[in-house]
Design a protein around this nucleic acid. Structure first.
Lengths: 340, 340
DNA sequence: ATAGATTGCTCAATCGTTTGTTCATATTAT
DNA sequence: ATAATATGAACAAACGATTGAGCAATCTAT
């Protein structure tokens, strides 16, 4: 078992408080003599002393722990964000408790409660997004909270977001410019800010180009690969098959690719595809994917900075920071003749 | 601020100990009357009581926290393992502190120290792998530790591994069967168990087929994408260019793909490729990748189970659990005529 | 020489829980 | 009626660290 401050005090023949002050670098402020300080430091080193963070956290009411609640860490988009967050957090002295909700609201609530009882100093939350009731208590306590990627209308917190509307608008506009008229969108979880903004972007791009919105081409119910697979399967067998697909997450894209592959169709010859979330392998797919790329690292970085600032100042000033996505045109959209 | 046991005691008009016993479900054992119990439970609910885990951990000397130290969480292989680990850990009541070492030994050491001072109950470590000195103290204390994916000769701990030798042997044997003679391997970090076992598998497959080992075809120095890119670039420009590449991690594969793509070469016509770590997108690459697939979920699952068992029994019986990888043949290796 | 300031450190309370021990009161037995 | 037992709950120490207040001993000033 690790050495405690008591062990050091004993061995150095001083009191607990003196040891505490020395190991916390407050020797000067509390007028501890150089000799005593040196001795204590030596003993501490000999005993491999490392402060018990539980005791410290209990006393100081801060743990240098921050919670990260994330819908799916095996999703490369989230994995990259997580990496940057953990990186920067560690640099700033904080450790990360990571919780994966699997896009499940109840798990999200459970995880948040658990994190709070562990005494986290702050929370970065990428919410499932359908419900925000459970966040009210945090907001009221002005607990340091940063919402990332998805936000809520009715929650006044720090939010770091991507302009999903613009991303979708650009993507669909590009598809239209390439001559497509029947464009399907495979949505993620309806009701979440990301989904509804992407849907609005899709719709507005159609309207602006005088194309009508066909409800049959608006499908999808969640962000999982299965959703992408199922909806693509159905779309590809529809009587009036769309010529292009807009998949709104990388997992949906994965499922869509599987379905397209199974149907022995080739991108972009047989079906065009534009995806959201730029995955590392996008350039090397059988047809390099045209995608909307999100600034993952920046998102993580800003989230951590905002959070730690809120923790330190203990002022939470609600604000939405919106980052711009970027359309990366590769080769997954076929150019159709105007007559088509 | 959250309600404490004291608040409940006050409001219910009982002592702290009684509240503690009730909320811990020990009412019966300590003969607390039904009425008192009911009252306390009610007050606890009203106040949204949740035990302070710091205080609890301090007193009980356990935190229900486990550490996960991982080389690169944005690597899909590790991300999938992490997901399974966090999942199962949570099911069993443990939370995960995740630390990313970026394949850096010094960061690894730093993270482990930090985790220990946070009072984690156990540690799952996917080590950088070159050094094991820093683990000796843990082993000596019989601290619950599980080594995952990479192990050490000189460390007697619980290890959950994949038979890297067999995986590499199968992969290279397959390439040879397809008629290739000049096969390059791009290694990860030399000296790590995964790298050296994969290299041995590669060499033995060659030897068994009476092919000589060409030192020029054994390249690579770490698991990053840049390594894959650089080594592939060089190999493709070598005077006697190999006809096939064996990339030993998914990030290396990513880099190799980038280089091949840049050189405007096509897989498998111009160059053949077999990869380690089966990534989700492997089937949808311009040529579906033949890869050695590792049982990621199983690895995570076993690691957690072994760890929690060690934590609970507080017995650490060193053992190596080795899982079988599987060669998945797709279409990234060209069949060469025997004359070639 | 004595009051006052300075130096160098210790005391003791506190953070929120847990748990062995103790102590009234109520119940039963004799 | 009194001793013995059972019942229901409170007391207090402990986990390891932090920190305001306190207290000798030494030094400075008059």
């Amino acid at each position: 078992m690790p050495a405690t401050i008591k062990d050091i005090a004993h061995q150095a023949g001083v009191s607990l408080s003196t040891v505490s002050r020395v190991v916390n670098g407050k020797a000067l402020r509390y007028r501890i003599s150089k000799e005593t300080e040196a001795k204590i430091l030596q003993v501490a080193k000999d005993l491999h002393y490392s402060p018990n963070q539980l005791a410290r956290g209990l006393r100081l009411k801060k743990t240098l722990l921050i919670g990260l609640v994330i819908p799916d860490i095996s999703n490369p988009f989230f994995a990259h964000i997580t990496k940057r967050i953990q990186n920067l957090a560690h640099q700033k002295g904080y450790s990360l408790i990571v919780c994966d909700t699997d896009e499940n609201l109840y798990l999200e609530i459970e995880h948040i409660d658990l994190l709070m009882s562990k005494g986290i100093d702050g929370l970065i939350l990428m919410p499932v997004g359908q419900e925000s009731q459970h966040l009210q208590p945090l907001i009221q306590r002005t607990f340091p909270l940063v919402l990332l990627d998805r936000c809520f209308e009715d929650i006044d917190s720090i939010s770091v977001l991507v302009d999903d509307y613009q991303g979708a608008f650009d993507a669909v506009s590009h598809i239209i410019e390439m001559g497509h008229r029947r464009i399907a969108i495979i949505q993620g979880l309806p009701g979440t800010s990301t989904s509804s903004n992407r849907l609005r972007g899709y719709q507005d791009a159609l309207l602006k180009n005088n194309l009508e919105i066909d409800a049959d081409l608006i499908v999808g119910s969640d962000f999982r690969a299965e959703n992408g697979y199922i909806e693509t399967k159905i779309l590809l067998h529809a009587p009036n098959r769309p010529t292009a697909l807009f998949t709104t997450s990388d997992l949906i894209t994965l499922g869509a690719l599987e379905a397209i592959h199974e149907e022995k169709l080739v991108i972009p010859q047989d079906i065009s595809l534009v995806a959201f979330d730029d995955i590392d392998f996008a350039p090397y797919l059988s047809s390099p994917l045209t995608t909307v790329s999100q600034p993952k690292k920046i998102m993580g970085e800003i989230a951590v900075k905002m959070l730690i600032d809120a923790i330190i100042t203990h002022r939470v000033s609600a604000q939405k920071i919106v980052l711009k996505p970027q359309l990366i045109v590769r080769n997954s959209v076929r150019r159709l003749g105007d007559g088509h």
